[in-house]
C-alpha cells in the first residue's frame, strides 16, 4: 500500500452545524486501525469521496476521544460538495494524520485563550476538547467565538455545553445584524470582543483560527493585550494535495504547510512571505 492510498472509513453520523456546514463522524473499516489510530490536536487529514477526489481538513474531534474521527466542512468546492452528498453508512477515504500540532503538553499550568471565527472553530474545537478532557492540567480557559449570524455558529450544542461549565469562560458573538431576538451573546466582530474580554496575557497562550481577515485583525489586539508572538498559535489553510510534503502545492517560503504546519505561531507567521 503506497502512501497515497487512503484508508476506508464508514460514515457513522452526520450533523448539520449550519445551513452550509456539516460534520461527519468517521470510523475506520479496519478494526485494528480504529483502535490504534492516534493523532494530536491540530493535525489534518485528506478526506476522499471516490470519483470526486480528496480534500484537506483538520481532524475536528479530540485525540482524547477514541474510536472515531470527525471533520467539519463547508460545501464550496468539488470534493466538499460531493462530501455533502454522502449519507450515514457510506464509505469514504481518509489519509492521515498529517502535519504538526498544537503543543498542548507545553501549555500545562498556563491559561489558554481560544479565539475562533466562523468555521475556524473546527481546528480549535479539537484543542478545546483536548484541553477540557485534561482540564486540571491548565489554568483559566477562555473561549471567544464569533460568526456572521446566529445561524452561522457551528457546534451549537458544544457551545452550550461549554457555557454550562463553571471552569470555562465563553463569549460568543455575532456580527451586527446577525443577531436574533432571543440572542443573549454579544453583538460585534470577534476582534473588538476579544479586546473587551481582555484575557490575561501573563502565563497564557492564545489559539486563533478563522478567516484570514479575523486572524489579521486580531493579531495586533493580542499584541496589545501583551501576548508574545510565540504564545499565539494559529493554522494555515493553504491548498494541499498530498499532505505528505511531496506535491509542492502548499509551499510558502521555507515551509511546506502540510509538513512544517499547519500550526504556526504568530512569530513564525511573521517570518513567512504573505502567500497564505
Amino acid at each position: 500500500m503506497n502512501i497515497y492510498q487512503p484508508q476506508l472509513a464508514l460514515v457513522t453520523a452526520l450533523t448539520d452545524e449550519t445551513h452550509d456546514t456539516r460534520t461527519l463522524r468517521l470510523e475506520f473499516e479496519d478494526e485494528a486501525l480504529r483502535d490504534s489510530f492516534d493523532f494530536h490536536a491540530g493535525q489534518f487529514g485528506e478526506y476522499s469521496v471516490f470519483g470526486a477526489g480528496e480534500s484537506t481538513f483538520c481532524i475536528a474531534s479530540a485525540p482524547t476521544r477514541k474510536g472515531f474521527i470527525e471533520c467539519s466542512f463547508k460545501a464550496v468546492g468539488k470534493v466538499t460538495s460531493a462530501l455533502r452528498e454522502v449519507n450515514v453508512g457510506d464509505t469514504v477515504g481518509f489519509r492521515g494524520p498529517y502535519g504538526n500540532w498544537f503543543p498542548v503538553d507545553e501549555w500545562k499550568g498556563k491559561d489558554v485563550v481560544f479565539i475562533a471565527g466562523g468555521i475556524g472553530l473546527a481546528p480549535v474545537r479539537c484543542v478545546i476538547w483536548n484541553v477540557l478532557d485534561r482540564r486540571e492540567e491548565f489554568g483559566d480557559v477562555t473561549i471567544v467565538y464569533g460568526a456572521r449570524s446566529v445561524d452561522d455558529l457551528v457546534y451549537k450544542r458544544e457551545l452550550e455545553e461549554w457555557a454550562s461549565r463553571s471552569d470555562v469562560k465563553i463569549v460568543t458573538t455575532v456580527d451586527p445584524g446577525g443577531e436574533t431576538k432571543d440572542w443573549t451573546g454579544e453583538v460585534g466582530y470577534v476582534t473588538p470582543v476579544v479586546e473587551a474580554t481582555a484575557p490575561m496575557a501573563q502565563n497564557a497562550v492564545a489559539v486563533l483560527c478563522g478567516p484570514p481577515i479575523v486572524v489579521k485583525l486580531t493579531l495586533p489586539v493580542l499584541d496589545k493585550l501583551g501576548f508574545a508572538d510565540e504564545a499565539i498559535f494559529t493554522t494555515l489553510e493553504n491548498r494541499m494535495k498530498c499532505g505528505l510534503g511531496k506535491c509542492g502545492r502548499c509551499n510558502i517560503g521555507p515551509v511546506y504547510v502540510c509538513k512544517d504546519g499547519p500550526v504556526f505561531t504568530a512569530a513564525q507567521l511573521k517570518e513567512l512571505p504573505a502567500e497564505f
Binding site: Y4, S48, G51, G53, K241, C247, G248
Partner: peptide, 19 residues
C-alpha cells in the same frame, strides 16, 4: 516534481486516482 491528484471515473462505480 509538483503534482496534482485527481480522480477519474471509468463509467460508473469504478475509477482510478491519478497523479
Amino acid at each position: 516534481h509538483c503534482f496534482d491528484i485527481v480522480d477519474e471515473e471509468e463509467g460508473i462505480g469504478k475509477g482510478t486516482r491519478r497523479r
